[in-house]
């Protein structure tokens, strides 16, 4: 008879990140408790006279300012200006970072030549360019988009490079052994392999794009949420300053969770060991 050797009949299940659902729930409750404590302190400190409401308006005052701000006619214009700057900056920055990262990874000569510039550029605190970009590209949206691009492309570039270079030697060897073309190896092995690392860079790029757009608006603008922060600060309407901060936080968090969701859909094979 044909002898079938059956070993390892059961597939190995991925271990749950938590010991059990009970513990997971407890962690969520802790998080919630901390939020409640912070909000309570925020609400009570100005009310009890511990800090001046001009410096720190209470939580309820900020909520009120947020609601009234969002009902203003001009709000949508400022909101959409900043959102547009962030989105264009993010998309351009990510594309440039991806393209440069791939170019440096697949073309060793380019990497040798360009890498010192890349490292040197990284060492510069790029925010110092903001006044320069205003001078070059004007007070409009383009100077903010440029700022967002300049500070957001870098994490994508580095992560693309690192991800593509971390393809295991045996995987490259396997592709060589079946005479795969460089393009086939890139598409079937290197790029998917690098995707989790690239995506981490893309998430960072979104945060940086928000910073770039806001910094640009701080330095010189006549519209946008960063402009509003400056305006309300000068008018000492700190409750509205906080309201704008909440909106900016919401933009950042919303984008991040969208990317996080996309990440999980796209990189479904990621194991816990590979981290987030």
């Amino acid at each position: 008879m044909a002898k079938t050797v059956t070993l390892d009949a059961e597939p190995v299940k991925a271990a749950s990140p938590y010991k059990n659902a009970n513990q997971e729930l407890r962690y969520k409750l802790y998080t919630l408790a901390i939020i409640v404590v912070i909000l309570a302190a925020w609400e009570l400190a100005p009310r009890m006279g511990l800090v001046s409401p001009i410096i720190l308006p209470s939580f309820s005052a900020v909520v009120g300012a947020l609601i009234s701000l969002m009902q203003q006619d001009f709000f949508l214009r400022h909101f959409s200006v900043t959102l547009t700057e962030i989105l264009i900056g993010f998309v351009l920055g990510t594309s440039i970072g991806l393209a440069l990262g791939i170019a440096l990874a697949v073309w060793p000569t380019a990497k040798r030549i360009a890498y010192p510039f890349v490292v040197g550029f990284q060492a510069i605190p790029k925010i110092v360019f903001a006044p320069l970009f205003i001078a070059w590209f004007g007070f409009g949206m383009s100077s903010k988009v440029v700022m967002a691009v300049v500070i957001s492309f870098f994490p994508v570039l580095i992560n693309t490079l690192v991800g593509l270079e971390s393809v295991p030697e045996d995987a490259r060897k396997l592709m060589r052994s079946i005479k795969a073309t460089p393009l086939q190896t890139f598409r079937k092995v290197s790029l998917p392999h690098a995707l989790p690392v690239i995506f981490a860079g893309v998430k960072a790029a979104l945060t940086f794009a928000v910073i770039g757009a806001i910094v640009g608006e701080f330095v010189g603008a006549s519209e946008g949420l960063g402009y509003l922060v400056e305006l309300y600060k000068n008018q000492l309407r700190i409750d509205r300053v906080f309201a704008v901060i909440v909106i900016l936080a919401a933009i950042g968090a919303g984008g991040y969770f969208l990317l996080e969701w996309l990440d999980r859909k796209l990189i479904f094979w990621r194991t816990d060991a590979q981290g987030k």
């Binding site: 295991p168 060897k173 396997l174 052994s177 079937k188 990189i267 479904f268 094979w269 194991t271």
Partner: peptide, 15 residues
């Protein structure tokens, strides 16, 4: 392509 190569690890593509 008449030759197959096998490594110490399986070298499978996880996706």
């Amino acid at each position: 392509r008449q030759v197959g190569f096998m490594f110490q690890t399986a070298v499978l593509l996880p996706w």
